[in-house]
Nucleic acid binder design. Sequence first.
DNA 1: TCGTTTTTCTAGATCGATTTAGAAGAACGA
DNA 2: TCGTTCTTCTAAATCGATCTAGAAAAACGA
Lengths: 345, 345
Amino acid sequence: MAGVTLKTVAKAVGVSPSTVSNAYNKPDQLSTALRERILTTAQELGYAGPDASARALRSGKAGAVGVLFTDKLAYAFSDPYAVGFLAGLAEVAEEFSTSLLLMPLSSTDIAGGSNAVQQAAIDAAAIFCVPGGHPALEILANRGIPSVSTDRGDHPDLSWVAIDEVEAAAQLGEHLARLGHREVVVLVDNAGAAGGRPVELTLDEVGYTDCELRIRGLQKAMPDARLRIVSGGHNAIASGLRGAEYVLDSQDRPTAIVGLSDVQALGALEAMKVRGLTPGRDLSLAGFDDIPAAAAAGLTTVRQPIKDKGRAVGRILLDPATTERQLMMPTQLIVRSSSGPAPRH
Amino acid sequence: MAGVTLKTVAKAVGVSPSTVSNAYNKPDQLSTALRERILTTAQELGYAGPDASARALRSGKAGAVGVLFTDKLAYAFSDPYAVGFLAGLAEVAEEFSTSLLLMPLSSTDIAGGSNAVQQAAIDAAAIFCVPGGHPALEILANRGIPSVSTDRGDHPDLSWVAIDEVEAAAQLGEHLARLGHREVVVLVDNAGAAGGRPVELTLDEVGYTDCELRIRGLQKAMPDARLRIVSGGHNAIASGLRGAEYVLDSQDRPTAIVGLSDVQALGALEAMKVRGLTPGRDLSLAGFDDIPAAAAAGLTTVRQPIKDKGRAVGRILLDPATTERQLMMPTQLIVRSSSGPAPRH
DNA sequence: TCGTTTTTCTAGATCGATTTAGAAGAACGA
DNA sequence: TCGTTCTTCTAAATCGATCTAGAAAAACGA
């Protein structure tokens, strides 16, 4: 049963291995009759078709694109924003009959050879919100794997599909400033705070480039405001909840909370509800991304075309017709009921 | 730059290729000094570590688990239920430093060798709601790849993690029957109706095993009711919306609509809202899965532990300590405001 | 009919590692 | 001091295909 290879089939049919290979990969290189005969015999022998690894080795094509996520792989699915990206990417991958390889970014043994990014059989990689300088990025670069990032890179030969984080955040900041907010808390994700108690960070301690840029954008637009940075853990509703609890239960309540992602903001929304606070009246709340749930919750947010982002990344990775390798996507401030004038004392 | 292999490094250091290989994979098989020297030289030469495909070929381990989805790959991400499954699976995969390979199920060239399922370099596969008899399943079986399905299989040697679909649906059916509903429309996903107009189906035409079983469960619990089966396309909110529109705008309105997934039901909810119908009063609505949005929408539904399902599948695939290869997960009827007594005429 | 093109098929090298069995030298016990 | 066991390293086979160049046979044109 096992151990049936191209050779076995070739011997059984009485042709060369090359011919059997051609029967599978280049049907027009041999007569229909012979091809038929080969395929039939293969089936009879229980041959399952050319071995994937062997083919990948020899042909140099793995037929898969890798996807690299910020946090733990499982967390990626807790943010509809990340899921939307995947959906867009998957759409293009499907078009090119390419699989998506989601790689865990577990930090163990990055130096040695036994980590997923090192072992992954992929032709290219999409890098989703991975902080620059992460060891996994270096591995990819070393392996010579073409990559596209969702963060704007410094080098001119890097490929990316991004938004103008600073400008997008500034739009939101202007909106809040105009409403009179001077005391603002920003909720960020931070692996360090995961599981533990919420932490207050300085701008330098904010690891992720995009988060940092957004905070800069807010600062730029609201120079008179006091911005505090708080994290309740990784990017998830529960973290936003924890972070907001910490802030709301302290003596030093802000007049506005900005989640750097909608899931963070939705977590904060829950914390407000529990405390009987009405968003937009007692305290303003805003998010980032405009995931579907944001509309339902009446959350003011900055919309970014996430599915298009995924599609664009996919095209750069897979479609040879795509020449533009650095793409700035548009964003849009969506004002809903969760933001309102700062209450006067 | 390119073309640096184990051999190159070996030659440069002046050792055999085996030793270089050991430096990466079996550190205790050589002296620390030599290992150090090899790794340094490798870096200098720009060697990126053992080639993934070659390693996979020789060692017979790909370091990845395949995931097979019902519909188009991109659709998988439109249902939080599927995403929850992925999250659970990813959790376990991460634990075992294994990647997840999402394979598109594009129907093209199933017979030939050039489809993703055939080409995928995977050690095992998770099969999520793929209808039995699908060609891709046969390919996996042929390739001898151990698989676990989310649908209960017939053969005793198949592995699966499932729920008692019939019983789960029967619970919901009883609930509706008790409320006096006799005219029920079931919304199912159906690839055939995708993009086009909603279609009305017979039970035989319902492709997916789990959908069919659920309908049987409903029938069993409400033998006096008239059950109509309608599909607005694949499994997504938009399809539920279309299907419900078709039903609500016809002469023959039911007293209850059951979506065989929550996303279908949420689509129907939108259709009702637009028409000024209050769920639970004017018309009852129920779903399946209990995704997070269901609670927010007040949707009566059947909860299944989807993340646990993903975890369990992952364990069977990856954890050698797991012996139970057929798992029935519990379900629970969650009654919310969307279901109420059938209106009398 | 004969040379030319096209179709059909093959031999052998190669992709880049891992594995097995065993050699050479060092350390060890008596 | 001599045989034995460990440690450290290597030679050669192997994983299972695909590719390149070219041979043999068939079809074609004049």
